[in-house]
Simulated assay, not measured.
Amino acid sequence: MTTASKILYVIAGPTASGKTAAAIALAQRLDTCIISADSRQCYREMTIGTAKPTANELAAVKHYFIDEFPVTQELTAADFERLALGYLNEIFATRHTAVLCGGTGLYIKALCEGLDAMPATDPDIALRTEAEYKENGIEWLQQAVETEDPEFYETAEVQNPARLLRALSFIRSTGKSIVHYRSHTPKERPFRIIKIGLELPREVLYDRINRRVAMMMTEGLESEVRGLIPYKHLKNLQTVGYAELFEHFEGKCTLAEAVDKIKQHTRNYAKRQMTWFRKDAEMTWLRADDEQLVTKILAISTA
């Protein structure tokens, strides 16, 4: 069997759309493994707030890029591209197919298309931009990025100041949005790629998000985040579900207000994820709650 005959199924979509369940059902049907394309589930200390697959789900299908790194280690999309290609080599050594599942659009793009080399950010500009942020706060940073780099802001995780700072420093250094270095000349991959986007009516998706956040709190999210206070300055923890509870611990809002913010910010993030994935012309969209979902995915690969 030639390498070119291998198939990578990509299961993408917004948070809480049912990607994990769909990917596991597909991988079980194909007797193969799953590579996570989630930029936070790879960290061992972040479990409840990242909605990792459960122990039973991880036991049902072998997963890669789950619980592989400490929260203190920073990973980039380029790191993911390198790691994921290695995972695929291992999977394809014994199997015809593999499944990629996640909602981090840049990670999926990195694996499927590769990343272009990008110019360096001017360190002086980066320092000045960070100083402005420390003086003026997150709302200033969000507004600055929206004004100076609307292309990036359209799909950005706007509660993550580290990513906003990087994008703002980059455009101030180069005059170009960082999004233009998300490969416009896709690399050739020695396997076929089938991209499936999962969608739900907005009211259904938002209800699932609200219920998921409530369940996270029941499962102990507050305790998980409290245990990470010594690391709250890390970029990896400046993300939805963690940043809001850190604010609560600092006395900036009540617990109920923090939970409401997590729900709101997660809904906002899901909207931006859909904006990103909708731009991919290779994505075939299917209803996440379709009882024949796996059958329809497999039919696409044989069409």
Rank of each mutant, 00 (worst) to 15 (best):
T76R: 05
N236H: 03
Q238I: 04
E146M: 12
Q159P: 01
S301P: 06
R272Y: 13
T275E: 11
S183K: 13
V71T: 07
C253L: 10
E291P: 11
G103N: 00
A51W: 15
R166I: 14
M216N: 13
A167M: 11
L245W: 02
R226K: 12
D289T: 10
A270Y: 05
L85T: 03
A51Q: 13
E257R: 02
I125E: 04
L168R: 00
L30V: 09
E74R: 10
S301E: 12
L168S: 02
R192D: 11
E45G: 03
I171L: 01
E188V: 15
T129C: 07
F152C: 02
K263W: 08
L293G: 03
F80H: 03
E74T: 10
R182G: 13
K62P: 12
G251Q: 11
G102Q: 02
E282Y: 09
I91M: 05
A162P: 08
T185F: 12
D116V: 01
Y181T: 00
F80D: 07
M274R: 09
W285Q: 02
T174V: 15
I196R: 00
L58Q: 15
P186L: 00
E154G: 06
A37I: 02
T50W: 12
K109P: 03
Y181H: 06
G103S: 00
I178P: 05
L85G: 08
D207A: 13
G251K: 12
I34H: 08
K271Q: 14
A126R: 13
L106C: 09
I7R: 03
Q28D: 10
H180M: 06
V99F: 00
C101D: 08
L205K: 01
M46K: 02
Q73R: 10
I194K: 01
A126M: 09
K6Q: 11
P14D: 07
D116S: 12
E130L: 12
T104A: 00
M215G: 15
S36V: 00
S36N: 10
T174H: 10
Y64A: 05
H180V: 04
A77Q: 04
F170I: 11
L85M: 12
G251L: 09
N56M: 15
A37S: 06
E81A: 06
A21R: 11
T54R: 04
L255Y: 11
P53A: 00
V294E: 10
E151I: 10
T254C: 03
W140D: 07
R272I: 15
E68A: 13
E74A: 10
E146Q: 14
T54G: 09
Y133S: 05
G49Y: 08
T72C: 01
N136I: 07
F191G: 03
I297H: 07
Y231K: 03
N136Q: 14
M274H: 04
T2Q: 14
S17F: 10
Y133Q: 05
S39A: 09
I66F: 14
W140S: 05
Y87N: 01
